[in-house]
Amino acid sequence: MAVLERSYKRYTGALSPEWSRFLIIPRHAFRDVFRSKLFTGFYALSFMAPLVFAILIYLRHNTEALAIMRLNVVNVLPIDATFFLTFVEIQGWIGFFLALLVGPQQVARDLTNNGLPLYLCRPFSRSEYVVGKMSIVILLLSTITWVPGLILFLLQSYLEGWSWFSQNIPIASAIFLGSLVWILLLALLTQTISAWVKWRLAASAGLIGLFFIPSVFAAILNEMLATHWGNLLSLGSLIRNVWAGLFGTFVQQVGQVQQVRRGEIIREAWVTEPPLWASWLVLFLICALCLWLLSRKVKAYEVVK
């Protein structure tokens, strides 16, 4: 089949490896995504925090610079688990907004334009399709979360020495795992909403609602029942607990409640966060639900009964 010959000819050349075909989707999607100047600008801005953190690490080890600027950040800003937890939290929430810009249109577009039969009539399975679509968010968010996080960790290790690196390996794994859990959750949620809500704006609003409306309910529930178990409804609280658990800063007892009558304390109780495993469990259940919902929607054709 040559341009000039204009005749049909079978393809007999080499084929790409089957395992790598899901990566075709993000490769082509990025071309479209980075066409938007707004997105590209926002993506560039998301590297500001890693830059600031890198400067802080550098300053902490540069006594001459500190002396010139008459700063004493050595004691004020320790480079420890909390430092990296803060980094993961900041980048995680920036990642949320990036996912909000990229995610909701991915599956919705294909469903609106009946594109799914075109994918699935090829040697390309439904799971490869879902993984391909998710990897758009996963790859994009990785570049602003755990990749710069680990670079910061290596920078600190380089400046502090081998002993610091060997003592703080769990921080590196917490950066990677904590970011990955968040990215996976965002990727699954955006794709699921995208599959069920075809209108992009509604899908974006749905994603925001999914994060903020349950948090309001959780706050009301906590207030009414004097508990923190309502946090299991809030995705933000769940991921914060998971991050804190991974960085070793999770505290279960968060406050004390006293019931006072006529100036006398008649009941005293500790308000506790739900155990860490409960947060993991709820996140796991949310991911499983997303996968189930995706499997119901990602089909070449829907059979109308």
Partner: peptide, 25 residues
Amino acid sequence: PERDSFISKMSCIHFVRFMAELSGL
């Protein structure tokens, strides 16, 4: 397919190339 089936916001050459890549080329 019988119905309109496309990947939106793609030029025709990009669309057909994308489909060829998904087929393994």
